[in-house]
């Protein structure tokens, strides 16, 4: 049985022309003529007798198939175009829009955050710079005040020093003046004792001055 069917079926598989398998099957049944294949023949005979050679090429079916295809495909087309696809389009594009708007919102919020961070950092930087400035100013002011104070003190001290030096030199010259008078007196007394007579005042003064100058 398998041997009988095998080649026939392979022929069916390899056929491009849909007419051919049937013809070949019919030929096979004729040559073998076993009861099984007779049944096949009868089935074919019934189909052929009722519907013609090969159903897909039976032109008596064409009008009906075209008619119903036009109706059902037409219905399908209208329902797709008017109801189903607009709905799907709304769903799909609505989601796309929703996602796009959500993304835009997220971007906007991110930008706001970035701006806030930038403003914060700017404020921080300003505060830092202000702090530096104040610190520098204070430092400078303190340094200047200290400097002024120091200069005042120095001037004061210098003045005092000068006054002291003047006093010293005055005292010194006064003292030196006293020394001359004493020396003149002493020299006059010495001369008077040695010579027995008072020496002339101007001579003694000249002599004392000369020895003081040495």
């Amino acid at each position: 049985m398998f041997d009988k069917i095998g080649p026939t079926s392979l022929y069916v598989l390899s056929q491009d022309d849909p007419h051919a398998p049937l013809l070949h099957l019919a030929a096979a049944t004729d040559t073998h003529g076993s009861p099984e294949t007779h049944a096949t023949t009868e089935a074919h005979g019934g189909a052929e007798g009722h519907k013609g050679p090969f159903p897909p090429f039976d032109s008596s079916n064409f009008a009906g198939q075209l008619f119903w295809l036009a109706i059902f495909f037409g219905v399908l087309l209208i329902v797709m175009a008017k109801v189903a696809l607009p709905r799907l389009k709304n769903i799909v594009e609505g989601r796309a829009e929703r996602i796009a708007s959500d993304l835009a919102e997220a971007n906007r919020l991110k930008k706001e955050t970035d701006d806030a961070i930038a403003a914060y950092e700017k404020t921080l930087g300003d505060a830092r710079a202000e702090g530096h400035r104040i610190a520098a100013e204070t430092h400078e002011k303190v340094a200047r005040e200290a400097d002024e104070h120091r200069k005042g003190l120095e001037a004061d001290l210098n003045a005092k020093l000068e006054a002291s030096e003047a006093q010293i030199s005055a005292t010194k010259s006064a003292a030196l003046g006293n020394v001359r008078g004493i020396a003149v007196d002493a020299a006059g007394a010495i001369v008077e004792r040695l010579t027995g007579r008072p020496a002339a005042g101007p001579d003694i003064e000249r002599a004392v001055d000369a020895s003081l100058a040495n």
């Binding site: 099984e36 294949t37 089935a43 009722h50 090969f54």
Partner: peptide, 13 residues
């Protein structure tokens, strides 16, 4: 006799 395969029968209208 098994059921004979008629590969064309399914296309009948």
């Amino acid at each position: 006799a098994g059921e004979s395969p008629d590969p064309i029968h399914q296309f009948n209208i």
